[in-house]
Nucleic acid binder design. Structure first.
Lengths: 339, 339
DNA sequence: GGTTAATACGACATAGTGCGTCGCATGAGA
DNA sequence: TCTCATGCGACGCACTATGTCGTATTAACC
């Protein structure tokens, strides 16, 4: 039964089945995959050949003829079409997302999303929204840190190794040693800390689990040997243990009480620290914030950043930490600056 | 003249032209838009009606008949197809992006991107990558602040007003006043500060430009009157001026010199403060970082967050600021905590 | 309330095209 | 050299997409 809608449907399925550039599929493979996915895919091989040929006239797909068989692929993965089409609002949101993510994500990971951002930009360029570049600004916290560049092949290999549970052989240039060293890693997880991506892995024979920054890797090679997970390994608990000293992620919450300046109170009135946050204005003019928050290092950073605009009242242990911190700082700054 | 496979591609064009749910287009509008885009779109209106009806049988599009005219739209914006299909790596990157953005973006803006994230999640669910939820973690800086919810209609109206240069009438509940007030705003720009979105606008007759938080708006109504931009207004300079006290974005860079702990040095070795950052290890064991950085409030927050692990050496003015800050903190904490 | 414009939709005839089938050419592997 | 797999040209037919016309319904306007 030949209906144009069916044809459209089928063509879309074909287009979705054709892979993006580095990969490719033969005509018969595409047909087989589609037949398997949808049993009512009753077209002859000839029709499939014709479909692909037709589609290649209007979409950026081509075939490379090796021998007698055609291998199909998308030429330009940046040329993207989607149904339904992206709206201007969504395009704008994507543009914002891009700006937000740029200082946070490893560049190689971000590059995977480039086609989306490009698509959004192309859409906005034509419309009145194009001016929005000058009409929206993101005021970020913290300075813009420059993310270290990760080699694209390293990123791909690391993701693949983790995905397929395979050993990953790389040159690793650790911070302490100048020269890089060839190691085979047993990938267990990925941790992103600000802009840096770390592969959580155990080196070849050794049982201990360590962190390897992706940007210090080079010359990746996927080994055929399957990787093994140490019994009982769980990424969440590993992070808690491994990063205990630098970034403790305590499980329990603590009841925080702090006196804050009007500016900070205003800040917190809009973005609450927790669901149960309460802000009370005392008789003496001080504003006290109460909230149960996770007892983390990040909390300390964040509170400390406000300086004298925030005074931790309780828990007593946290107050003592801050008192010690301020004593140390005061001692530091009261001496003359060394040249 | 009905050329070969034209029908099929025309149907595709129609599918791309039909908007996602909240929006909708009439049959004639779709025809007009397509005719304008592609001059060889010589089909009768009747054909277009038939096309849409046919497509609605296999694709999630429907029409709502208001009066005598049909308004078409995609039912389920979550059902998305993109060409070429999303790869697993990209899906994973999107998933990460989602996690990164959640604490940063206004929820309503984030919701515009939901279909992408959902699409990615659906893709990952089936594959081996599904486990990646337990294999990747983002270690963020700062506690998770709860973003204030923005009403969806407010967000849409605000974006539309800015896009079409139209006056926006809303109920605004300012922080100081309990009751909300009806105001007509002249939209000029959007500013995102942490998770809060502000509309930069001037109220009806008044010449001064102010910031209106989106989450304090309700009952939006787009007016037909065109909005006007004050002569010489530029968002970037406005932010610099308006936010001078809370978030100064000074234009010039300052040469920062700071003594840091080994941990902070390690941190900075990976994410550089600036392109010219240098880290020197002095004879007495102290590590000194030099970089030219923007002279902003965020820089102070960020440096202060490290507490006694960072000692600002120069510029002298900045060091004096930090010395004063630490004196104030010390004074604060050496007195007993008030109950 | 009457009139007009706009839109949707059913019916019908016809052209022309998508699809299956067949057969041949070509390249790879045994 | 033989065999198998794939691509591709050709052919014929069924069937569907399309334009046209007429009618029903609604909104808008005087």
């Amino acid at each position: 039964m030949r209906k144009a809608v069916d044809t459209v449907f089928r063509y879309l399925a074909v287009l979705q089945c054709v892979p993006a550039h580095p990969a490719r599929k033969t005509t018969t493979r595409i047909l087989a995959e589609l037949r398997e996915k949808d049993p009512e895919f009753n077209v002859s091989a000839r029709s499939m050949q014709r479909s692909l040929e037709q589609l290649s006239a209007r979409f950026p797909i081509t075939c490379e003829t090796v021998g007698r068989t055609n291998h199909w692929y998308w030429i330009d993965s940046h040329a993207m079409t989607q149904l339904p089409a992206m709206t201007e609002h969504t395009a704008f949101a994507l543009r914002l997302a891009n700006e937000y993510l740029r200082p946070l994500m490893p560049p190689a990971t971000l590059r995977l999303l480039d086609s989306y951002f490009n698509h959004a930009n192309r859409l906005l360029k034509g419309s009145a929204l194009g001016r929005w570049a000058n009409r929206a600004r993101i005021v970020a916290r913290g300075p813009l840190l420059t993310p270290p560049p990760v080699k694209e092949d390293v990123q791909r290999a690391a993701y693949n190794a983790l995905l397929n549970d395979r050993l990953l052989e790389i040159n690793y240039r650790s911070r302490s040693q100048q020269r890089s060293q060839r190691v085979a890693l047993n990938p267990l997880g990925l941790v992103f800390r600000e802009t840096v991506a770390y592969l959580v892995a155990s080196a070849w024979h050794y049982p201990d689990v360590r962190h390897y920054a992706l940007h210090r890797m080079s010359k990746p090679r996927l080994l055929d040997q399957p990787a093994g997970t140490p019994p009982g390994f769980r990424l969440a608990s590993h992070i808690r243990d491994e990063l205990r000293f630098s970034y403790p992620l305590a499980s329990g919450n603590i009841p925080l009480r702090a006196a804050v300046s009007p500016e900070v109170a205003e800040h917190l009135a809009e973005r609450r620290l927790s669901g149960d946050q309460r802000i009370a204005r005392h008789a003496d003019g001080r504003i006290v914030v109460e909230a149960s928050v996770a007892n983390t290092q990040e909390l300390r950073w964040w509170l400390l950043g406000f300086g004298s605009a925030v005074e931790v009242l309780s828990p007593a242990s946290l107050r003592e930490e801050f008192a010690a911190q301020s004593r140390a700082m005061q001692a530091m700054y009261e001496t003359e600056a060394p040249s």
